[in-house]
Each structure stands twice: as C-alpha cells, then as structure tokens.
Amino acid sequence: MAEQKTSSTRYELGGDEFIFVELSESMNLEAMFKGMAITNGLAEEKLDGIMDICPGNASYMIRLNPEVIHPQEVIEKLKKLEASTTDYENIAIESRVIDVPVLFEDPWTHEALMRFRKNHQDPDSTDLEYCARINGFDSKQDLIRSIVDYPFLVSMVGFVPGLPFTFQLTSQEKQIEVPKYVTPRTFTPERAFGFGGAFAVIYPVQGAGGYQLFGTAAAPILDVQQQLPDFKESMVFPRQGDILRYRDVDRDEYDSIRQEVEAGTFRYKTEELSFTPGEVMSDPQAFAEKVMRRLYHD
C-alpha cells in the first residue's frame, strides 16, 4: 500500500461525540479554503451518524453519534478526504457577495469601550486609535479605509448563533491583526462590529466579548422572530463562504436603515458570485475589484 503523504494537520478527539481537525495553527487563506473543500466533501458523502459539520477558520469540527459511526472510522475518512483534496484552489465556490453597512465610531460601542477601559491594553486611547497605531496606520481613518477597501470571507459561524467570523481577502502583508481585550468585557452592544486576532465580527446579540470595538452594523444578522425577508428560511443570515463587504455609512444612512429594519422592509444588497480560491490567492486586489463591480456596477 502506498504510504499516505504526511501532513501537519492534527486530528483530535473531542470526547466520544466530537472530532476536531486543526489544519493550521495560524490563520491563512490556504487553510481556510482547504477546510471548506474537505467539509463540503464530507457533507456530500451524507454519512449516517454525522450530526454536525462545523467549518472553522483554520480548523473544523464534526459532531457524530458514536452508536452509529465510530469516531476512528470518521477520522480515517477525513484523512483520506484531506489527501485527495489537492486541487482545492480550482474548485469553484458558489457564494453570495453582501453589502454590510457599518457606522464606525458610533456612540453605542464608544460608550461600551469607554466603560471597560481598564480591561484594555491601552486605557488612554480608543480601540480604533490603538489598533490603527499598532498596525502602522497614520490615522484611524486609514484603518477604516483598509477595512472597507477589501471584502471579507465568512470563514466560520459560531460563538453565539449567527456570529460571522470574517477574514479579509487580501495579501498576507496587508492583513490587519489586533489583540483581544486583556480581560473580556461583560457587555457588548447588539450588532457591534469588532476585530480580534485576524477576524472582523458582528456580535448578533448583546453579551460578553473580547474583541476590539470599531462600530455598529446597521442591520441585524440574527432575527429570532424571522420578521425580515432575508430571514424567512433561517433566523441566521450569514453562511460560511459568503463574502461580506463592510461599507462605512454616515449617521443619516444608518438611521434610515434602522427605520427600514423597524418597518420590517430591510433587505441586504446581495449578488451571487462564483469564484475559485486560486483566483483570490493569486491576485487579491483584482478579486476585490471584481467583488465591488459585482456588488455595485454589474
């Protein structure tokens, strides 16, 4: 028998019901796209006893019923899938590109971040000022510009229902990286736009949190009552593989979106897009331009 190619991937048990697979300790586009291809491959096999397939950022997790399928058997299957997933760069991903309006430096996250200043690395500046400085930007406006210039891919949904972890589709050297709060906050406002590690997130509901706070999203990403049209099929809007473009809006536009949400008429501006990981990884700038065209001009 041919020996399987060795990889640095870790296959780990999470008790008797979970398997955790870490493709990479660090975040990168390769690990994320590879994880997507493997988890999609597993979903297509429709194995009995697989309860949940949870794609992560640079890892993924499976929940299973060990009375139906033995965890070791699933691990062997996943190793084979990984070994055969060599051409993931060229596998087309059917995705949605979504315009996500964000009010940066809004009063609500400002109030929250000031309240928890003693939990922060730099109690004397705001989260945005601190993160701009440590990422080498001249001003907080430059940091905001770099967030809105390139779209983000939903690499994982989790923490609480609907929270999208999003990773920017740009070259590694342009990636923004920020620490999490020294001590997590006990309060984060609903719809807060946060940044932690290499991920931008939107907090669906009010609660605890440790990400740096930059702004507030105008529209919800979780609608438990399923009243808005985008939430008719699922109370959770973002899906792994979606591309979010965060767009900075002023207070007037924010307020008018809030009115549409209250009236139950708001819809996200959404377009279909088919793309390959190779396309993103070889020329992130060209891909970002393609996303913008698709969203605002085509």
Binding site: E17, N57, G197
Partner: peptide, 21 residues
Amino acid sequence: QPFGAGSDPSNVTDLGYPIGS
C-alpha cells in the same frame, strides 16, 4: 503566537468548542 490567534499564550486562532470541552 501564530498569526490571527491573539497575543495571550492561551489564545488560538478562533475554533469550534465541543460540548463538554
């Protein structure tokens, strides 16, 4: 600390938590 994880030694690149973990 690997890229994307955060600066504390207990930070990892955000990942899934099993029930009971």
